[in-house]
Nucleic acid binder design. Structure first.
Lengths: 188, 188
DNA sequence: AGCCAAAGCTAAGGGGCTTAGCTTTTTGGG
DNA sequence: CCCAAAAAGCTAAGCCCCTTAGCTTTGGCT
């Protein structure tokens, strides 16, 4: 029996492919083992079990999103940066709708995901730097942006909108509605 | 063997209790059978299988939400109605966080849920009547409200917000930001 | 060359869903 | 009132999944 040359990283990557193909339902250790050419119990050499695998997948999705957000925000500031960030969020979910469904919504509460989650929030805060918000204003701004990005993206990814008509317009309206105001302006 | 006197409705109710207790993970035919005092295969006399059970549960959640939204909107109009509706949405999810996680986001795409989903949308449209919106304006308005309600509620129910501090304020800001404008006013 | 840790394997147990086929209860028509 | 048929149960059994236990092989390092 020649060795398959696996690694935890490779196993997680294959698991992501499996999710892309068949959704969360499609992620089974049996299917994963077959995909990487190994018997199911052998996976335990690289991953502690289905639970840990899911956690690792969540971390990976967070990292991928952070990378894309970083690239989108780089070189921009103010409304320009925030709008780019919001579109990067939507685009990620459209590119990987099934992966997004497995992303934990409370990464900061799970020690294994707190780092990745913290880095993602860091990028969002950086995009807001130009507004010169107080800490509590920034917290509110991040929350509003997240509610809109997550709400819109999860609905779109799950076919929650009847017709795709004017969806770009809907999203644009929502972004405008929750854009923070600069220090001099009114509101928030 | 005395008869248990089950019915599809009773089975679905017990399933909802199971979800309230242990989340979607906790919903298993074995556990459900034990809860209603019957052997697992006997459940098939009332429900076609786990898949249909989930669909029935989804329909039930939609109906419950519709009832509560109807009660909340009754006797109100304009901003008052919309605000009451948005709070009823949040309150439902806070009361039954685990049920909400099993509610389908695309009810109109599943024949068995289309009716219940349509009635829910009907209530929302009724809440918007006072604004005298055109059909396309109404579609955009419903979408924006749904994005905010679903985004906020699902994040809150899953512990997505770090601290509960000022969450009421966050939600109020979001509602204000997406409230439709009456016919005479600017925007939308 | 030889040792040993890592990476595989097979076997087996436990739990879940579902089907098949049987028994008992209930119901409703004659 | 009786009895036939439908409805509601049951047990047995098959299949798939996750996981643990214990063995074998590979491959790197001395």
């Amino acid at each position: 029996m020649p060795r398959a040359g696996l690694s935890t990283r490779a196993v997680v990557s294959a698991a992501l492919d499996l999710i892309d193909e068949g959704g969360v339902e499609g992620l089974t250790l049996a299917a994963l083992a077959q995909k990487v050419g190994v018997a199911a119990p052998s996976l335990y050499k690289h991953v502690a079990g289905l639970g840990e695998l899911r956690t690792l997948i969540g971390a990976r999705v967070l990292e991928d999103m952070t990378d894309r957000f970083t690239a989108a925000v780089l070189g921009r500031s103010g409304d320009d940066a925030v709008i780019a960030l919001m579109h990067a969020y939507r685009d990620y979910v459209l590119d990987h709708p099934r992966r997004y469904a497995v992303m934990p919504l409370d990464p900061l509460h799970e020690p294994a995901l707190a780092d990745a989650g913290g880095r993602l929030i860091g990028v969002v805060l950086a995009a807001l730097r130009d507004y010169a918000l107080t800490e509590s204003q920034a917290v509110q701004a991040v929350r509003r942006l997240r509610v809109v990005a997550h709400g819109f993206a999860s609905l779109e990814a799950n076919g929650g909108f009847g017709l795709p008509e004017d969806l770009d317009e809907t999203y644009a309206q929502l972004i405008t509605a929750v854009l923070p105001k600069k220090a001099g302006e009114l509101d928030v």
